[in-house]
Structure formats: C-alpha cells, structure tokens
Design a protein around this nucleic acid. Sequence first.
DNA 1: GGGGGAAGGACCA
DNA 2: TTCCTGGTCCTTCCCCC
Length: 777
Amino acid sequence: MATGGTSSSSGEGFLSRMALNDNKAGMEGLNRDKINKIIMESSKGSRFYENELKKEQQVNQRIERMMLQKAHITEQQLSKAQAQVEKMTSDLERGRDLSRVIVHVDMDAFYAAVETRDCPDLMDKPMAVGSMSMLSTSNYHARKFGVRAAMPGFIAKKLCPNLVIVPTNFDKYRAVSAEVREVFADYDPHFLPMSLDEAYLDISDHLEQRRGWPEALRTHQFNSKIEDHGGLQETVEVEGLSPVLFENSPSSSPCLQDAAGGEVEVFGTCAEEAVREMRFRIEQKTSLTASAGIAPNMMLAKVCSDKNKPNGQYRLPSNRQAVIDFIQDLPVRKISGIGKVTEKMLGALGITSCSHLGQEMALLALLFSETSWHHFLHISMGLGSTHIERDGERKSMSTERTFGEMGALEEQFSLCKELCQDLAQDLQKEALKGKTVTLKLKNVNFEVKTRAWTLPCAVATTEELFAVAKDLLKTEIDNVSPQPLRLRLMGVRVSSFASADDKKPLQKSIVGFLHKKQTDSSSTSQISSHKPNTNTSAETDISMSALTASDKMTHEPSAHASTSSYCSTEPESGTDSLTCPVCFREVNTTELTVFNRHIDQCLSGVTMGKLLSRCVLDSVGLRLDSSAGDHTESTTGLLLYETSTANISLSTVGLNPVCLNTCPNGDVSIHRANTLKVSSQSDPHVRVCLLSPGGPRPMTTPKPESRDHRGPALTCPVCQETQDTNDLTLFNRHVDLCLNQEVLHELGGLASVDRTTHTAPPAAHKGPCFRYVLFTE
DNA sequence: GGGGGAAGGACCA
DNA sequence: TTCCTGGTCCTTCCCCC
C-alpha cells in the first residue's frame, strides 16, 4: 500500500499523508514501519506537522461527506448513471487509437546521476541533491533508506546518517538536459519536454522512415564522441564514459567492430530497438542512463517507463487486449494525476486498482464531478492522449521565495518589490503581459493564502506588478493588524495573458514618466524634495506607479503610511520646497499636509490614483506631456498626453468616450468596437485627454487655474476657440456642437448630447492644433 | 442558470 | 534548527447579467 493509502489510523496520531511515499523506483521492499516511525518522530509537534494534520482532517471530512452522499444514492440513480457510463464507454471504445507509438523517456535519478558522474567518489555512497530543508532527488543507495525527493534533508539524515547532500546546480542540469534533448530531436523533432529530465516523443514517423534505413544509419559507436578540430572531424576515445551509474546497459546485444577497430552496436528497426538506440546514444553522450516506456498513448507510456527503472525500458503492445490486461491490476496511484488525496478517496470506496475503477464507474459518476469521472473512465479503459501537443500556451508565470520568519513591514514590502522585479524580467524574456496579478503568502504555520486582482489591461513591468501586489499585501497586513503578518513564503504570479497583439514588445509606459522631474530615468525613483534625498527607509523607494487612491489619501506619516503613502517622506532639513510628482511644479512648502493637499488637487479625486494604480495607460503607448505645461489640467480631472499615434482600447481604460473631435489635419477613428486609433500625419501635437471617472468634467467646469495655459475665459477643448461666455450651459452647447456626429453615432449612444440647441458652428480652426479625446465614466 | 473571477487545493517534476 | 519551486488544472463559492 502506498502513501498511507486507505489508512484510517490517524486517530492513533499517525498521519498517513506524511508517511513514506514509496511509489518510486528503487523503493520496493523497504521497512516502511521503521521509516515512518522516524519520519513521524522527526516531524511531530512542528508547525508543518500541525498543518499537515489539519489538511488530513479536511480530507477525512471530504471522505465523510462523500460516504454520506453514497449512502443516499438510489438504485434508480445508479442504473441511470450506469447507462450513461456504458454509452460513453462505447463511444470512447470506437475512438480508441492504437496507431501511434508514444515514448516516455525519464532520466534515472537525474540530478543525483549528474552529480555522481562529475564526482565518482559519490558512486557507492547514499547521496541526495538539495539542502537540509528539501531534497530534489536521491540516488538508489539512498532510496534503500527511504530517502527520496520532496523529503527535507534533516529527516533524510535521520533515516540515513551517512547521507551525502549535494547542493543543486541547475545550470549544469540544464546543460546536460540540452544534450539529451538533441538526441530526442532525432527521433521526434516535436517532442514534448516535461521537465529537465523527462519528455514524451511520438516516434511513429521515425519508425516509418527507419524501416528503410541501411544498417549504417542504425550503427552507433561506443564511448566516443565527435570533436571538431579545425574543421576536421575526428572520432576520439573518451575515457571513463561507460555506463557508470546503473547496470543493465541498453547495449545488451553483442558488440561489433567497425573498420577502424572501434566498438560499435547495430540497432534494429522496430520500436524497442529505436528506443534502445536512443537510450544508448544518451548514455554515450552524457554517461547518464535513461528509462523509457513505449505504448500507444501518453498515459500508458508514462506508466511503462517506470516499469523497468532504472536503465530499462518496457513496451506495451499496441493491441486492445494487451492494454486492458496491463491496466487490470495497476494500482491507481501509478497513474499520473492521481495523488495521495485522490488515492485515499478512491480507497475509501474500495478502489485501489484500475480494474476496480472500471467496475465502480457508475458510482464514481454520481460522486465525482464530470471532469473527474471522465478522467477515471479514460484511465480504466487504458486511454490517454495520442497526440503530443508541444506548443501549448503558457497560462501563468510566477516567482516565489521561502525564507525564515519575516514580520517586518519594511522587509515584506521590499521583498514584494524584489519578486515583482524578478517576475517582470521573466515576463520580458517571453514578451508576456497579464491581467491578473496574484500574491501568494504562506505564514509561519504553513497556511497558504492567495490574493488576486484582475486589471482592465495587461501589465508586465516591475512598477505595474508592484502597484497591485503592494496593495494586496497591504490589505493582508491590515487584515491581521495589529498582529504582524508572520510570513515564511511570498510569491507573485501573473496570469490571464493578453492576446498575441498585446504580447508585442512592451510599449513605453506612461508610469515611467511619473517620476521625479530631474531624473530622466526609466527606473523607479524616489518621491522627494529637490535636494538629494537621503532618506534611507526602504519604503521611500516605492514608485509613483504604486500609488493608489487610498495611499494618496493617507496624509499622516503613520506606520502604514510609511509603506504606502506617497508623501510620507520627510523633507530634508533646509529644503523649502517639494516637487509635485503630478504637475512637476515646485510647491513652496515643507508641510506634508499642505503638500498632500496640493497633490490631491492634482490627482483630482480618485482618478489619477485609480488610473495609475491599475496601470491602465501602459498599453496606450502615451507619454505625459510635461513640457508644454498642459499637465496642470490634471487639476480639473483632465490628463493630457502627447502622442503621434496611439491605439486606445476604451474597455481597457475602463472609461467611456463622451467627446471626440476631428481636427482638420488629423484623424480620430474607431477601428474596432471600443478601440480608438488616434494618429496624425501632419500635426505633431495630437493630444489625448483621459478624463477621470468621478473627476470634474473640464468641458463643463474649466477652472480658472486650468485656463492659464489656454488663454482667458472658457476655452473649448475641442476646437480650441475661446468662448465669449461664462455661462456653462452655453459653453456646453458649443462643445456639443464640436463633437463629431459620425463618431458619436459609432459610439452607439454612449454619450447623450443634446445637439438640438447648437449655436453657431465652430469657428475655423486656428493656431496649433491640439486634438482631444475625452473619456469619462 | 451560466459565465467569470477569486480563492484554495491537488498534483506533478 | 530545518519541510521547495514553479507550473497546470480543478473545485467551490460568489457575484452579475
């Protein structure tokens, strides 16, 4: 019985989920009781153990609920389910495909084998790769003691005091993996790598070609490799490159000698021979052995590769009866996808083998979800995927870190930012942007929490990620306040990747411009006074992009404000002014309250913060027009950006357009629903205004301070003409008139404008052309 | 009631 | 003294249309 199985002895303090999982090659016939005793004694009382106990209880409750449900199933329900199962079984049977030859190749104890190859002293010693906290893999000597992957090193040491623990060296494993993959590619150029040491191949096409190959193409040399010496290829003998790690070398057939006297091996044309050749070549190339399974589908190939591990292979013939026979007595736990919880749940129903699974399918159809019982049905029939899909799109990307207890806010925010930085780099490498940012936290009691936020548009930069992650972290900190958040792990994940269009190289973000005026930098800057900021606190490094409305509102430099309030930095003594990060003006005060009030005005309610914190402008490809002074309009709720070309997704921005104007020498067009294209061939001064939700509407309330830059009185933001009126109603009518009829029509009535009261048509356009696209809630 | 987001968990290497 | 990391998929709950 593997991994505790159906054990219900947790009442005696035995935690089955923590027991040895000996479902691994090289771990048969171990003294499980003795090993489990040591594992339990090492773990008992620890926070980890307590958490595992809790999880075990949850699984037990799930089983109880399931059994209760089972008790209420009627004969009628069962026979109905049976009919459904039978119908589906016959459908699946009709579609059974036995034509493909699928191979699953798995390197034997990969990391451990690489380390042993490079340090032969380890050969006869029990060894594992990893650390005292966690082991990645162990060699077969260590497995005899119950030491296996996913076991903490300190427990492994108790099981096997002589265990040698070697630290991981992923660069090395990646290099070896690349060599192995070169061999795979010769048999299936579209092979599917599952990890550094494992892959699926469809060798059907290779076998077809192979049948016509002359013997020379199926002949491979022993212990030699080709080296390129100045363009001349020469075969050299390599010392010590024999099957060093495991017995049962694939070279079981007699060796021959080639014309040059080197030992060679000739391989046949069938599937077994092709796979034996592949393993032979891997071994000659890397001195490492691999095991393989050959079967008509991926699910079976995976099981088969484990059958003769290490350094062996197994072929399941491609006929229905062979598959059914093979599946019959196979323990469910051997199937990839059935772990300790599913095994335990099935065990509670008396199901331990795949044949049981088939027999109880009607019951399973009533107790499990459709996805689950369909999966079970496929397994019980020996069905699996026959098509190796390589280019499956990535769904998410994340990074996380485990550390010693961390309770200090500063440290937590700083780590959060570091993670965002790392993730942003990774995203950039694959040119990915995602809409959902998830923060993962594990506290010192091993309780895991994930908190996600989905943005209206895809993000990728450190600032954008941190803006969200920081908020999520802050919320969690507030939730446990006044207790500190005692963490042992933090992670950041991005998912809901944008479509191919959005995956193009990132456009310059407007966020990057919302930094200190003096710095031209694209990196994060400190919000500071004019004089060099000597503040050493980590939180002053929080960029403007991380600012949210709630942060902005935090006027007091309190503990929380220090991590999020944008204005928390104390001005340096001797400084008599501070630079507003919104309008970039000097504010003649050192009073934070006054300074904050100024910023509030600039931010115009929640708008700016909301816009920025959600990073909605990134995909717009706009930059803040800070040079012309028009930014002061932000005090009225207008944000001005200068651009020559911009595609603006209205749904992304989350705002509705209320007004568009068409200038004589530019074009504002709609090319998809909710998407505007703003471009200008002749006029470099195209401007896009984003009017914040909730903010004052500039068309109706142009405030005096915002008029300074556009002349006296009320200036129409559409035609740029100064209107000879102070009456807002009249002014509004004028603006209405300027709205492009056709565009409004296309907008489908998003704006309700009364055009029946138009006064005169707008005057002919004069002066520099500033075109505006206005959005509002 | 269905779709979609959020949260949590199972499972894998 | 000490129990990882990075990924996918599934389930459940809840909200909204």
